[in-house]
Computed example of a mutant assay.
Amino acid sequence: MEDSNMELVRRRAIPWMLWTIWKNRNSLLYAEVQESTLLLAHIALEESTLWNELNKVEQGGNQYLHDLGAPYLTGGAWITRDHRGEVGMHARVALLPSPDRLSAEMNCLLWVLRSLRDLRLEEVSVGIDSQRLVEAIQNPIRWPRYRCLLR
């Protein structure tokens, strides 16, 4: 990973290469399917590049990657009000840790929507203060890392 003789894009792709090898091994063992090694290497390199680009943050002209080390401990709450503003129902929950803030916000929103659906509420307004979450919902193809949550 620190070999400066190899270009940065390829060094960053090493974890994806290892993961691709593991997935291909499982496909071969359990489904008797094997893809071309050239195709697998290309896919791993592409996924690595995409992930690294999407996880850059600019600060003072410099770019750095998000620190995904510490999990986000999150919780959520919702409240319903009628047309007069009177409180109807409410709930709160502590959610499982998330790897980053955006996935924590997505999990919270999904919990709210599932709760309201389970109560058979057909018309709701949801307030969200996260611009990144709104962007991810409006344009999910630009957020492949969160594909399973946005689906």
Rank of each mutant, 00 (worst) to 15 (best):
V87P: 05
W78S: 03
G69S: 15
E135H: 09
W78L: 03
E32H: 15
K56Y: 08
A136D: 03
D118M: 12
N62I: 12
H66P: 08
L96A: 14
L95Y: 03
E46C: 10
L121Y: 14
L65T: 14
Q131S: 11
A31E: 14
I79E: 14
A104D: 03
M106N: 05
E86P: 06
A77I: 02
R120D: 15
S36E: 06
L121P: 05
S36Y: 02
E135Q: 13
G60F: 10
Y72L: 07
Y30C: 09
D82M: 11
Q34K: 04
N107K: 07
R81Y: 12
R101V: 12
P140W: 01
V87W: 13
G85Y: 07
Q131A: 10
W51F: 13
S130E: 02
G76T: 04
E46R: 13
L38I: 06
I128S: 09
A136W: 02
V124F: 12
V33P: 01
V124A: 11
I79P: 00
P99Y: 05
Y30Q: 09
L38H: 04
G75L: 00
M89G: 08
E58R: 10
N62G: 11
G75P: 06
A44W: 02
P71E: 02
R120L: 13
L50V: 14
V124D: 10
L116I: 09
V87N: 12
R114Y: 08
S130T: 05
I128W: 07
R114G: 08
Q63S: 15
S98H: 04
N107Y: 02
D118P: 05
S115M: 06
H66W: 15
G60Y: 11
I128T: 08
L29G: 04
S103V: 01
G61C: 08
M89R: 12
I43R: 04
T74H: 00
S130H: 02
W78C: 04
N52E: 09
S115D: 00
N62Y: 15
R81G: 09
W78D: 03
T49L: 11
N52D: 11
A77H: 02
V134Q: 10
D129F: 08
E46P: 03
E122Y: 11
T49V: 12
